[in-house]
Structures are given as structure tokens and as C-alpha cells.
Amino acid sequence: MDTQTDGRRWHDMGGQDAGPISDDQHDFSLWEKRVDALMILCSGKGYFTVDGLRRVLEDMGEEAFETMSYYERWIASINQNLIESSAYTTEELATKMAEVEARGTTYGDASLGK
């Protein structure tokens, strides 16, 4: 099917050809569960909606879908939505990310919350 001309965006996949369904399954790691929790909490507090989450995920495009994991895409979208709703600024984020990165080279070292 020509996905360029049928009027649909990349995420609108229903009915397209695709390969076999993989039964690979993984358990969610702590950082993924935290991303999930941030989505539920921040949307529950009115910072954004599930539609806002999806808007950014869809605008990230097909390449992001293919190259980033599910919760990698989610934290990117959550972050974009939180900046848009003025929870914090891009500058504050950049400063904090640099601070986090300086703590260590593994997730365990860099994350202070236990």
C-alpha cells in the first residue's frame, strides 16, 4: 500500500501489510515504570491530556517509532507537554539533565530516588 498518497499519517496503521507478530515480551524496568507513573500523575493533575501525549508521539514520526523504545517515546512526549504547560522551562531541563549526567555512568548512579 502506498502510505504516501492514501491520505493517512504514519501512525494510522490499520489495514496495512506487515510481518508476523512477535511474541517477544519484556518486563518493564524501573525507569519505564517511572515514565508510566509520570504520565498518569501529570495528566491526572491537568498538565496535559492523553491527546497531548499522542499528538507529540505522532509528530515525532515514523523513524522515532522504529528506532526508539515505547517509553523512550513517552518520556520525550511527556517532557514536551510539560514544557508547553509551563511546568518547567527548557533551560531548567537542560541544567538538570547536565547535573544528572555528571552523577555517574549508569542509571543506578544517576538516579537519586530509590
Partner: peptide, 30 residues
């Protein structure tokens, strides 16, 4: 299988998760 987690090199998106979470706590959002 476990997804790569605490004992693998810190990724950009994990760094963002930590930063976002800490900012939200510092700002009393959660």
C-alpha cells in the same frame, strides 16, 4: 528477559526521565 536497566550505560532518555521527575518534585507538582 529484563529490559536493560540500572547496570547499563545511562541513556539520553533515562537522563531525561530522571531530570523530569526531579524537576516535578522540586516544583511540588508531585
Amino acid at each position: 528477559p529484563y529490559r536493560a536497566d540500572d547496570d547499563t550505560p545511562l541513556s539520553y532518555w533515562q537522563t531525561m526521565e530522571i531530570a523530569v521527575r526531579e524537576l516535578l518534585v522540586e516544583k511540588d507538582i508531585t
